[in-house]
Design a protein around this nucleic acid. Structure first.
Lengths: 336, 336
DNA sequence: TTGTACGCGTTATCAA
DNA sequence: TTGATAACGCGTACAA
């Protein structure tokens, strides 16, 4: 457990017989040091394997370029968003510090860890916290907090969500236009971002004068949730003509069980997902779905964080990223 | 970009009219301070929202409990391993610091970042580096390096791999026992951990006196790779009786296209994957595959890192985690 | 319990 | 360019 002491700026200075602050100036690329000094010092640094001590820098610097990112590695759409966040931060000269939700770790603990690193802001990706919990967390959090994927308009934290409500409503209209009237929504209650989608479904159904019907999936938000409901419906001989799922993976599990049982899609049942994962375009899947744009969400989240960092008084915003309907081959005219 | 100054131990001490080192002693849970002082200080700390400055601690402490973890968020099996690593570290009182490979970032840069945080060791999950590159990286890395998923026996770094070679060989024998003789391996050249699997395939085929046949997939290691090859084979009317894929997602893409084209599995073609993702057990998929145990791999990786931390002179090890064959419903007797 | 004092590696400001 | 000096937040040793 011993920490081998790494090379410091003082070591470089000693080796070269120059001052420690000259080394510092060169490595920070300040104007002042001569070209020759630059060259020698940079060469020595790399030869000795020097790496700046992030902790010491954080301790000394007045400002931080670190932005904390909380995510769940095994969730469906989050890894893509995390990748996009890296790119969006880099464009602004900022730097991501990750904190994963795994096992027993709560979001609060993950955020605490990031604050320990003195991150300038914290981005929560796909959080499972309620609006109230997010508000409380944001209030006790001394730096700007951005929630990506879920959350309501708030005075305490920024929100970036895809337009799930509008998107799913559009999907409902798409199916109604194809002659469907028995539409089922596959909900995953534990999955926060699915809430708005459910609202969109309910609203569009009511507007069309149709009876909403919601199936509550198991507490996973993956293929198993959809597969479970499909099994149940088949058993009861109670298949609707169209199904809207909380996300692509749920839709996908549903599809698998249907096809396995010889139910034809979309001839007998139409299916719509949400996310537009790469999986959705796969030959043999070709899922009709609502596209969630990870790049746009990441960019908006970073933009929101940067705004609040530049202008401390700025009010948190709520940004809606369009979730357009992508029609592929799992939706078609309703069976009669 | 201003960093609002967070609460320090000195702030707590001032507020309570006690000394800073009493606060320090209480927060470090040292024996000495009275129960009353403890209570007051802890209450004040939480009320003021105190969080220890990770950088200052790292700077002051001689030893680090931070273990760096490099991974790629969008890869298939890695998120599960990352989650397991958290748990394995926690069991030993250690702490994970993540660094993601996204966009242009190289592994070297990710490792540098972790060294900047003065991690005591670095774990690479599912690296795409060659043995030579890993060796070089490890040589220039002042702390122990563990590669999970790929790598050869080495004097420079530890390796934890699932027994891909042995596992795939077993799968080949399984298929041969079912009467197969035309077996195709779906390789993803860019995917390092697949190398050993390919070797296992080749060896088992040669031992059985059969001609190996390898299809090189596109450079993705997901469903698209398998789907592409399936499309090609169908076009050429050249389907083998059995297929072994580099991983579950490749196998899965292959399966989708087959089924979509009306090819029955396993009656006409048998398919074997690798990983045993949750997806593989899904009703309607039920993929025969080789199980990669994320918990076991994570535990072994952390164990290896801990060994080298305790005993600086210890030689790196290579640990093989069994990858047992799990027979489900995508393999059966060969068509004739 | 407290005060005093130092050091960790870095950034930063001054005057020479 | 350099040297002197301070500061960041925390851990820790020592004497009072």
């Amino acid at each position: 457990m011993e920490q081998r002491r790494l090379v410091t700026m003082a070591d470089i200075a000693r080796q070269l017989g120059v001052s420690r602050q000259l080394v510092s100036a060169v490595l920070r690329d300040e104007s002042g040091p001569s070209a020759e000094a630059r060259e020698r010092i940079i060469a020595a640094a790399r030869q000795l394997g020097y790496r700046p001590h992030a902790g010491a820098q954080a301790l000394r610097r007045a400002r931080s370029i670190d932005i904390g990112v909380v995510f769940t590695p095994t969730h469906a759409a989050e890894p893509e968003i995390v990748e996009s966040v890296y790119a969006a931060l880099a464009r602004r000269g900022l730097h991501a510090v990750l904190s994963a939700l795994a096992g027993e770790r709560t979001t609060g603990e993950a955020v605490d860890e990031l604050l320990g690193h003195r991150c300038a802001a914290v981005v929560l990706v796909g959080s499972e916290l309620s609006h109230l919990e997010l508000s409380r967390l944001a209030s006790s959090c001394p730096v700007p907090l951005v929630s990506v994927g879920t959350g309501r308009r708030s005075e305490a934290y920024d929100v970036v969500v895809s337009a799930g409500e509008r998107g799913v409503a559009e999907a409902v209209r798409h199916l109604i236009g194809l002659g469907h009237s028995e539409l089922l929504y596959l909900d995953v209650p534990a999955m926060r971002p699915a809430r708005a989608r459910l609202r969109g479904y309910r609203r569009a159904m009511r507007t069309a004068g149709l009876e909403p019907r919601v199936a509550r999936c198991a507490d996973t938000n993956d293929e198993w949730a959809g597969a479970g409901v499909a099994g149940l419906l088949l058993e009861q001989g109670d298949l609707p003509t169209g199904v809207l799922a909380a996300n692509d993976r749920v839709a996908f599990g549903f599809l698998q069980v249907l096809r396995q049982s010889g139910v034809r899609v979309p001839e007998e049942v139409s299916v719509v997902g949400f996310d537009d994962l790469r999986l959705a375009q796969l030959p043999g899947v070709e899922l009709t779905t609502l596209r969630q744009d990870p790049d746009a969400m990441a960019e908006a989240a970073v933009e929101a964080a940067a705004r609040r960092l530049e202008d401390t008084g700025a009010a948190p915003v709520r940004i809606l990223i369009p979730a357009p309907l992508v029609v592929r081959r799992t939706t078609g005219p309703a069976r009669r």
